[in-house]
Each structure stands twice: as C-alpha cells, then as structure tokens.
Design a protein around this nucleic acid. Structure first.
Length: 800
DNA sequence: AGGACATGTCATGCG
DNA sequence: ACCGCATGACATGTC
C-alpha cells in the first residue's frame, strides 16, 4: 500500500489534476463489499481472480496494493498502472490474492462522464424502479458500469466519448449530458491517450472498450459515440437513440433491430433493465469493460414495429445442450490466455491468477452491493426507461448478448435474426466473447427451451436457471473444485514435505548412525589398543565382543549416546579381558553390544539377554552363568568368530580387527607374524564384523522408514478428511447460490409485463438465453431452434 | 515343536 | 582392484 501510494501520488497527481481539469471523474464503487462469498469461492475459487474486471482488478489485487476503490480515480489509476507495473517488476513481489476485488465504477451524474455513478439503482428490484431507472441517468450508467471493474471505468471513459456512458444520460438527463458536452475534443483525445497508455501496459484496449474500439477503427465516423465525436453522440442521445443502437439500426453495434416482438407489450413496464439488473445482480457479469459482457438485449419490438424495450428478451437460438459447456471451456481458455498475457506484464505467472481472471462473473459478483451480483453496468447506457415503447435497449444489447451468449458474438448475429431479440449484440470483439463466457456458463441453460412444466409461478427455479446452475455452473464449480483440490494437494504436499523433513530421521539417521560408531570406534580404539596390549589372549582367547556383556555400564556412563556404537563397547571391553575383573568393576558391566540402535538403554538390554545387567531373564541367565567357570562363560557367550580367534590364537581382539582403520589394521597385521590361516580368519572376522554393523544400521533404517511412512499415512488421512470437509462446504455454498438464482429468476419473471401490462404466466412463458447472449421471453414448448427460425412466430405467441 | 523375533552371515552391488 | 557400505536373503539363536 504504502509504497504504491508513493508511486501513485507523485506520478498520478499530475493525472489527477489533468483529469480534474477535464472534468472527468470516476468513482469506483465498492463492488467488492458485497460479494457472495460462496459464489466467489466456488466459482472463482479461492485463488482465482475470476472476475471479468479481473484484468484490471487482477492487477490491482495482485499488486496487493490497496487502492481504495472509491478513492481512486480510475483514469489515473489506469494511467498509473504503468508505474505499478514497473514497481512490480522491481519488487517482483507476486502476491497471489485469492480474493478478487471487483470495482463497480460509478460516475457521478455530475461528472462529465456521468456514467451511472450508482450501482445501487441498477440493483433495485422495484418494478417502478425500472422506469425510474430509465429516467434516472444514474441507473443507466450503473448498468453499464455494472461490471464494476476498474476496466469498467475504462469503459466508462470510452463510453463517455464513444458509447453508452454519455448516451443514456443524454436521453434522459440533460444534466449528465451536459457533463458530456463539457468534454471537448481535446479532452476526449486526452482520455484516449490515457487509454492507450493502459493498453501499452498490456491491457488491450479492446479490453476496455470491447466493441467501441473496433467500431472506431471500422466505423469511426458513423458513430458519434466514439471518443472523437462527442457532439454526435450527444445529438444522437438527444434524439433518443441509444448508444447501442437501440434504434432499429445501430451502427455501432451493427445490430439492426429489425426484429421486434410485436406481441410483447409496449408496456412491459418492468423495464428489461430491471430484469437485467436482477439477472445481473444474480450473476455478476460486470466485466464488460474487459470482456464485453454479453449484453442481454431486452429489446422487444412492439407490434407497431416500434421497438418495445422492456421485455427485450430476444429469443435465443437454441443451443445444443452440450455447446454451452464447450463454449465455456473455450472461452475460459481464451480468457486464460488473455489473462496470462496481462499477467506476464504484471509478472503474474501463477496459475491462480489465470484462474482468477477466468471468470468475468466473479468480478461482477463482488461488485454488487447488498449481495447483488455486479451487473455489467457499462452496457447499461441503454435507456433505463427501456419501456415497451422504446424499441431497443441499446446498452443492454451489448452487454447482455455477450453475457448470455457463450458463443461468439460475431457469429451470433445470424442466429439473432431469426430470433426476436430485442437487441443484437454487435460486438464481434473478442472481449464480448469473453464476457459471454462466464455468463453463458452461468446463464445459458444447456437447453434453451425448457419444458413449460418447470416454470411456475412458484419460486421454483425456472428451467433455464436451474439448468444453468446445475450444469454449467456446477461444471465450472467442479472444475474449480478440482483446481482447488490441486491447490490443496500441493499445499498439503508441501506441508507434508515439511513435516516429513522434520520427522524424517531416515536420511539423518542413516548418515548419523553410521558415523557415530566410527567416531566412537576411533576414539575407543586408541585407548583399547593401549590397554589391550597387556591382555593375555592365550588365556582368555580373543575376547568375543558379544561375550563381554559385563562392560555395559561403562559405555553408558561414558556417554555412549543412544546411537549404535558396537565398536565402542567392543573396544572398551578389550581392556577388561579378564572375566574375573568384571565383578570388581561394576561400572563396566553395562558395556556390551548395543544393538538397540537408537533405542534407550533399557530396551537395548532387553534385546541382549546375555548382558548381565539386563533385567529379568538376563539376571536369571546371569545367575546361571555364575555357576559356570569364567572360561566357559566366555566361550559360551563369545561369538563364533571370537571362539575361532581364540582357537587360532589371534594376538589381538576382534574389536581391533573389526574397528581399526585399514591402515592401522594393516600395520597391526604387519607387526605380528601370522600364519595364513590366522590372516584369513582375521580378515573374515573383520568382514563379518563390519557387515554385522552394517546390517544393524540397515535394519534401523528400515524401521525408521516404516515409521516415517506410517506418519505420512496419518498425515494424508488428516488432509483427506479436511478436504472432504471443505468440499462439503462448497457444495453447501452452491446450493445456496442455486436458491438465490431461483428467487431472482422468479422475481425478474414476475416483473415482466406484456404490452397490455399483464404479467406473463410462468406456466406459459419462460426466460430463455440464446446463444448470442440475448435473453428472451419465450412461450414454453417452443424450441430455441424454432425461435431462431421463426422469431416472429414466437412473438405472436407471446402476444397471445 | 513351531512360530515370531532378533541377530548374524553371506552374496551382491554400488560408490 | 580394493575397501567400505547397503541390502536382500538366509541362517541361527532365543523366547
């Protein structure tokens, strides 16, 4: 935050001043505040910056720089992103934020841009609200800005110059319009420059204004909306023409609104916008800015041929059920790709970032206040009044079609013609497609035509939505789940890894245990060698290392620590080769083979019954041994090699033979004149002795390995249970979302009115989502395909 | 007596 | 080639 501020403050102040001069003011709404937590997590995934707005938001969030959405002037912000990027690159600090913040950008009506500054109005569900919204300039902008992402702000800017932002206001509110008028061409140019800067930063300009830019390039002149022609825009708006070509022919959108639903009442007082708002509220599409959200064009043509706005539910061409998902995936991939590109700029490489960006909808969700999902408001430039009287909802056309249309917008045109869609989505831009993706996933039911049975007046989830939720939504969720699980698994893996590392004595033990004996051996060997010289091998024979159990205590007292130190004990024993002396030196009793590896002494003794000091049996044995003469006792307890050594009259102890370093061992052999048999025996003793130690170490390692594996299994089980718990939580969240969808659908549907102001009976009509992203109110039983072919027919049906 | 377990030993491979 | 080590397989001893 702080350092970000530093960068911003210095560099941005200029921008701020500039913008203030221009009169452009962008208010960033806290879409974030009202996210649906479940949706966010589920759809977006914990890590995902899933919102459409992401491109901008993603950066913002990723930057981790808390730019307060409200306080930040978006224009400045975007312009300054370059600085941010530089800073980021300097720091290389990648903060994968799991949460995506979607900003709903409002423009104050006061401001020149005067996009709807208030998202809230758009959200309002009131029936009257729709009309009010239409009247209310703010509302329209809200619709547009609904996406509420920083990008949206961008759009707003553009919109100001080009599309809707200005337009709606122009129609309905002169004041807002005035603000637009204030913008001089220079100002517009300046804004454009700022945009380009953003584009330079890596945000494709298209991202910001999806269709507008293209149109500019293609159709620059014809559309006043474009930045350059502010005047034309104003005029156009004054004329009552919606930016988005609500008019029969929208040059920008390129959509002709030829097809109007005569049947749909002019009166659909419940403005489509409201419906859209509701829908949007439910599903945050808001990313139009980046990804031109599919615009639901509620344009309905009145019978007169006058476009009736309100119902604007274009009949969508029927989509094969499978397609939506495919499209979704495709779009996801596209989005991912785009996100990656941007991420690269931002140095965001993490897959999470991509995922986050994936879903436009997420951003919208957050943007919504009061738990409403953010609507792609920028599209809203549409007249909010969109009443039946008004043929088209231009703004909606842009956003919604894309939103709902999983398929390419460009392609969408053809299908639309068939359908009586209120507005056509012009945007052939990739952005639009992106916007559509999320929505499509969410909104497009695999089967556009739902059976009539599903829709009832009751709050039961209408078919399309239910399908939406169940299939596409769930699919997405499932994908997210998978991703999340992967994330968890990785995290878990790392965690386990850490734990194992800490626990794993395997490597440590393996390294240590062998080493310890050697060290002890060397130390002891020297002492032993000195003392051992005095020993009379002839009498006792070579002392079997195993037989000298008596010496154990010394080992313990001397600090032969837990490690396996057979050599040590053995060497020490050498100094006390006379059994008779053992009793006199109780402290040495404990010295013996320690095969306990790292086990405590007590256990070690237990393992070796021959140890006199040992408990229980050993004591018994000790008694038994006492009965025998020391010589027999030695023989009995001496190892085979020791006995052999004694038999062969080897002049030094087995311990020496075994533990002496090669050089010393060779010297020892050189000192003594030994026969071939003795030499062979000595070499065998050494070999076997070393191998014995090695075997002990090996077994110890095996044990350690097993223990570690058991620990690992326990850890994995814990993780599994935890993941299952999380999964259940997600499922619960999904269920909640579904319920909310149902209620919202119901609310929207109930507010729809035909030309005569009568509500559509849910048993006869249902809302359908076409492939091109338009939302249609369709009589039940009519297949989307039919609708595509014969839109008018449907209109008639609707009239009925 | 036989199984389980611990330990020792051998053979082999690797560094 | 030798040495040391690791390890599987087997043998032995003990309970």
């Amino acid at each position: 935050m702080l350092y970000l501020k530093k960068y911003f403050t210095e560099g941005l102040i200029q921008f701020t001043i500039l913008l203030s001069l221009i009169g452009v003011r962008v208010d960033v709404d806290t879409y974030l505040s009202n996210q649906l937590p479940p949706l966010r997590e589920i759809i977006l995934g914990p890590s995902s910056a899933y919102t459409q707005t992401q491109f901008h938001n993603l950066r913002n969030t990723l930057d981790g720089n808390g730019i307060h959405p409200k306080s930040v002037d978006l224009d400045q912000f975007f312009t300054t992103r370059r600085l941010l990027n530089q800073v980021r690159q300097l720091d290389r600090i990648f903060v994968p934020s799991t949460e995506l913040n979607t900003w709903l950008v409002h423009r104050d009506s006061e401001t020149v841009v005067s996009t709807s500054s208030q998202s809230s109005p758009s959200i309002t569900l009131d029936n009257g609200g729709g009309l009010e919204d239409a009247n209310n300039p703010d509302a329209t902008p809200a619709m547009r800005g609904g996406s509420g992402t920083p990008e949206s702000t961008y759009n707003l800017n553009e919109a100001d110059s080009s599309l809707g932002a200005v337009a709606p206001e122009g129609n309905q509110e002169p004041s807002s319009r005035d603000g637009n008028d204030d913008l001089t061409k220079e100002d517009i140019d300046l804004i454009d420059i700022l945009w380009r800067q953003d584009i330079d930063l890596g945000a494709g300009r298209e991202v910001f204004n999806y269709s507008n830019r293209q149109k500019e390039s293609e159709e620059e002149k014809p559309h006043p909306q474009e930045n350059k022609d502010g005047n034309e825009e104003q005029e156009r708006w004054r004329n009552g023409v919606n930016l988005q070509g609500a008019q029969p022919v929208d040059g920008e959108t390129g959509e002709s609104i030829p097809e109007q639903l005569p049947g749909l009442g002019s009166q659909t007082s419940l403005s489509l916008q409201e419906c859209l708002r509701l829908l949007e509220a439910t599903f945050p599409f808001g990313e139009e800015s980046e990804f031109p959200a599919p615009v639901v064009t509620p344009e309905i043509v009145s019978n007169d041929g006058v476009p009736s706005t309100s119902q604007s539910l274009p009949l969508a061409p029927q989509l094969p059920p499978a397609e939506p998902q495919l499209d979704l995936e495709q779009q996801w991939q596209d989005i991912m790709a785009i996100m990656e590109l941007q991420a690269m700029e931002v140095n965001i490489t993490s897959p999470h970032s991509n995922s986050s960006s994936d879903i436009d909808s997420s951003g919208t969700t957050e943007s919504n206040t009061g738990g409403n999902f953010g609507l792609p408001t920028h599209s809203t430039p549409v007249n909010q009044d969109v009443s039946l009287h008004q043929a088209s909802l231009p703004s909606c056309s842009q956003d919604f079609p894309q939103i709902f249309n999983p398929q390419l917008d460009s392609t969408s045109n053809a299908p639309r013609t068939t359908m009586p869609r209120l507005a056509s989505s012009n945007s052939s831009n990739i952005n639009s497609t992106f916007g559509a993706t999320n929505l499509t996933g969410i909104f497009l039911p695999p089967h556009i035509n739902s059976s009539s049975t599903n829709i009832t007046s009751t709050p039961i989830l209408p078919d399309p939505f239910s399908n939406l939720l169940e299939e596409s939504m769930l699919d997405e969720i499932s994908l997210l789940d998978l991703a999340m699980e992967e994330g968890f698994s990785q995290a878990q893996a790392s965690q386990l890894e850490d734990e194992l590392d800490s626990d794993s004595g395997l490597s440590l033990d393996s390294s240590h245990s062998p080493a310890s004996p050697s060290s002890s051996e060397t130390s002891c060997s020297s002492a032993a060698s000195s003392s051992s010289t005095s020993a009379t091998f002839s009498e006792e024979g070579a002392v079997g290392y195993s037989t000298d159990s008596e010496v154990a205590t010394v080992e313990t007292e001397e600090g032969a620590v837990g490690g396996y130190q057979p050599g040590y004990s053995k060497l020490c024993r050498m100094s006390y080769q006379d059994p008779s002396q053992f009793h006199g030196l109780p402290q040495l009793d404990s010295i013996s083979h320690n095969h306990t590896y790292n086990l405590p002494l007590s256990s070690a003794f237990a393992e070796h019954p021959e140890l006199p000091i040992s408990v229980g049996k050993k004591t018994v044995r000790d008694k038994h041994n006492k009965l025998q003469p020391p010589q027999d006792l030695l023989d009995k307890h001496s190892s085979r090699d020791e006995r052999r050594a004694r038999a062969m009259k080897i002049p030094f102890s087995n311990e020496k033979i075994i533990n002496l370093p090669v050089e010393e061992f060779n010297e020892l052999l050189a000192k003594h004149h030994l026969s071939e048999g003795q030499l062979a025996l000595i070499r065998d003793i050494r070999r076997r002795g070393k191998n014995k130690m090695a075997a002990q170490n090996c077994r110890k390692r095996k044990l350690d390995t097993i223990i570690n594996l058991e620990q690992g299994v326990q850890d994995l089980r814990r993780d599994k249970s935890r993941l299952l718990k999380e999964k259940m939580e997600f499922i619960r969240s999904i269920r909640q979302m579904k319920q909310k969808m149902q209620s919202l659908y119901q609310e929207v549907f109930t507010q729809l009115r035909d030309e005569e102001g009568r509500p559509y009976p849910p048993s006869e009509y249902s809302l359908q989502y076409s492939a091109d992203g338009s939302v249609l109110i369709m009589p039940r039983g009519v297949t989307t395909a039919e609708q595509n072919r014969k839109p008018e027919k449907k209109q008639k049906d609707k009239k009925k």
